[in-house]
Design a protein around this nucleic acid. Structure first.
Lengths: 200, 200
DNA sequence: CCCCATTGTTGTCATTGACAACTTGTCGGG
DNA sequence: CCCGACAAGTTGTCAATGACAACAATGGGG
């Protein structure tokens, strides 16, 4: 009963969410190497071992962070698709491209984390599932475009894979470029994708 | 003159190279989080502070590692191009694709490291330069193909960017897939790139 | 109303990265 | 040839960290 009566309640309320939110901020602001469970605990105003109740491991925290990343990215892509409506495949692919690359620029470190965790065989099945949902979001407009005859038919998966790969690769390669350059070359990439490399 | 006379010389000979080599092995075998300067020092048979003479910091070691990665990848791509000779652009692009993806599969963790370090503004100019050399290696066949009329003309950079992006993205997305699946869908990706998405 | 699962806490340990101060080996100019 | 400067390695130390164990507060359901 000394002066040390903490005004904070003994229970945080939603420590788990707070930790993830702080982790994401720290990741964006100071890079992945600056992520420390103890520091996150301090920021959340809890003791150094409290995070252990919510995440077995540092890795578990990172996995959870990656998972929120996948979910948010998928959500944004779906919102973008909804926003452009039924304006044709190319418009929709361009919308996907802008959104994906925008996310990559705003969340470069998070995106790195997402894919780094995905590579690790020890990573949870949840991550693979989230990744699949992400790919599905890209496949759907492709399939729609094929059935409308707007793009060439055939197995949609290689096509979707090519588009996804180009988007992800572009985002990775261009993440540090000036924004207007990005928009410009992004449009060019979509054009090349649609017209192909062959002369006509 | 007790039995403890270490048979190894006081000077290692080429500690720097040994550290990088061990680091790469450890990275591939046990993931990036298992990389410890002290453990690398132990493996090399030197004291825990010896690495400090060659790398200011852990980050410096990682940068050096990334640099060797870029150099080796660029070298392999050039070798692959040399091996296919003058067989046409599509053949050359396919060779690049196979080589790039092969490298990505065999060195997934290293490739992650390479691009993660590239994102960091604190990373050395050497890394950017290495990255540029890598891109140049992809651009050259494109330019050649354009001047031969084998692929559509125009600014070669968006074209090269699209190809590079597709390759890198594909490598990232497919790094964990079974090899024959990879070869198959890789061929499809190159086909889509050449023919484009538009119906014909 | 009290039991006990959940969430947090304190304490501790080995490992790590960084740095400082010192030693050993090598090599080139006088 | 030797001697001094510089490169490369060494020991010692420190604060920070992740993991774990043992203990304490909280509060909801039997």
């Amino acid at each position: 009963m000394l002066g040390g009566m903490a005004d904070r309640p003994y229970h945080h309320g939603d420590l788990r969410a707070a930790l993830i939110a702080n982790a994401e901020r720290a990741l964006a602001e100071r890079g992945p190497s600056a992520l420390s469970l103890r520091e996150l605990a301090r920021e959340a105003g809890v003791s150094h071992a409290a995070p252990g109740r919510h995440f077995k491991d540092k890795q578990a925290l990172l996995d959870a962070l990656a998972l929120t990343g996948f979910d948010r990215l998928t959500g944004r892509l779906e919102d973008a698709l909804a926003a452009v409506g039924e304006d044709g495949v190319r418009t929709r692919v361009l919308a996907l491209a802008r959104t994906y690359v925008g996310f990559a620029i705003d969340n470069a470190a998070l995106l790195d984390l997402m894919y780094a965790r995905k590579h690790d065989p020890r990573s949870s099945a949840q991550l693979s599932a989230a990744m699949e949902r992400l790919l599905d979001t890209v496949v759907r407009p492709i399939v729609d475009g094929q059935s409308d005859g707007e793009i060439a038919g055939g197995d949609p998966w290689p096509v979707a894979m090519t588009v996804s790969a180009a988007l992800h690769g572009f985002a990775t390669l261009k993440a540090a470029a000036p924004p207007e350059k990005v928009e410009e070359s992004l449009a060019e990439v979509v054009r090349v994708l649609f017209e192909g490399l062959a002369p006509r």
